[in-house]
């Protein structure tokens, strides 16, 4: 009897919309709460840097940075090639070959570099963070931390945050250069542009500000990835399936947030800084 009631209620679209809205609202509240906790943990860490778990920080730096370098570099390099190739074909029609280095350079440095690095980092680090914290939750390690009088946010988030905000910009710098190299190879092989000319054009078009925009964006993305990953981990349920779900949602939400942030930052940079 109750089952049938449930079925009919489930079928009501309004009810479903209501349910979804409630979930979104609750998740938003929990996100805000988590960000608040993370910020207070950051403030705490700044006040007492001695208490930061530097060993974990180094471990995560290794995990997110050194281990991720080959794949990140490769993806950025291929992105540069793809972008360069597509643009070369189109621009050659209009005789705008000379603008290829500028286009590839600016696109890679200002947008694609930070974005690709962030997406790779989401897949590697963001999901790992969510899984790690989710598993800790399942095995009551988070509860243990709380009852030991620790702030799990400070304990678990701060080392990851520091590691990510340090390594992601480094990866982005390398990614930017790899992307430009990819474009250069296309420019050289398919448009016959001398490497020296390509280099000069790139240097002429890619202003130092763009380079710093790239680094700034990557720092923002690093914070977004870490916080989203950890947040989903903390929000995970208490079994193994919940950990898997947390990992998936960490990746999806983090990519969404990255794109949202990038949209906002692109606007901010183009209107305020380079406007």
């Amino acid at each position: 009897m109750r089952r049938r009631d449930d079925m009919t209620r489930r079928n009501s679209i309004l009810l479903q919309i209501g349910d979804v809205s409630c979930v979104i609202w609750q998740e938003t509240l929990s996100l805000i709460q988590f960000i608040g906790e993370a910020v207070s943990a950051c403030a705490d860490a700044v006040r007492r840097p001695r208490k930061i778990r530097w060993r974990e920080t180094l471990f995560y730096m290794n995990m997110c940075g050194s281990d991720g370098l080959p794949i990140t570099a490769l993806i950025c390099f291929l992105t540069g090639i793809i972008l360069g190739y597509q643009c070369a074909v189109q621009m050659h029609k209009y005789g705008a070959d000379a603008f290829l280095p500028g286009l590839v350079g600016c696109s890679v440095v200002r947008e694609l570099g930070p974005m690709m690095v962030a997406i790779v980092a989401t897949g590697r680090a963001g999901s790992a963070f969510a899984a790690e914290i989710g598993t800790m939750k399942v095995s009551e390690e988070i509860d243990a931390m709380r009852t030991m009088g620790f702030l799990p946010e400070r304990f678990l988030v701060i080392p990851k945050l520091i590691a990510m905000t340090l390594t992601i910009p480094m990866l982005t710098v390398i990614g930017d250069v790899m992307g430009i190299l990819g474009g250069m190879i296309v420019g050289h092989t398919s448009l016959g542009m001398p490497v020296q000319t390509y280099y000069q054009q790139t240097v002429e078009w890619v202003a130092p500000e763009y380079f710093f925009e790239s680094i700034f964006k990557s720092v923002v993305f690093a914070v977004v990835i870490t916080l989203t990953g950890c947040w989903r981990g903390f929000r995970a349920g208490n079994d193994a399936i919940a950990v898997g779900k947390a990992t998936t949602s960490a990746v999806v939400i983090s990519i969404l947030f990255i794109i949202l942030c990038d949209t906002f930052l692109a606007h901010v940079f183009n209107t305020i800084f380079f406007g």
Partner: peptide, 20 residues
């Protein structure tokens, strides 16, 4: 609350040792 928590110890069912 954390000051109160420091005055008791908890051993969890699965141990809940930090695996790292």
């Amino acid at each position: 609350k954390r000051a109160i928590m420091r005055r008791f110890g908890v051993a969890y069912q699965g141990g809940a040792l930090f695996r790292s």
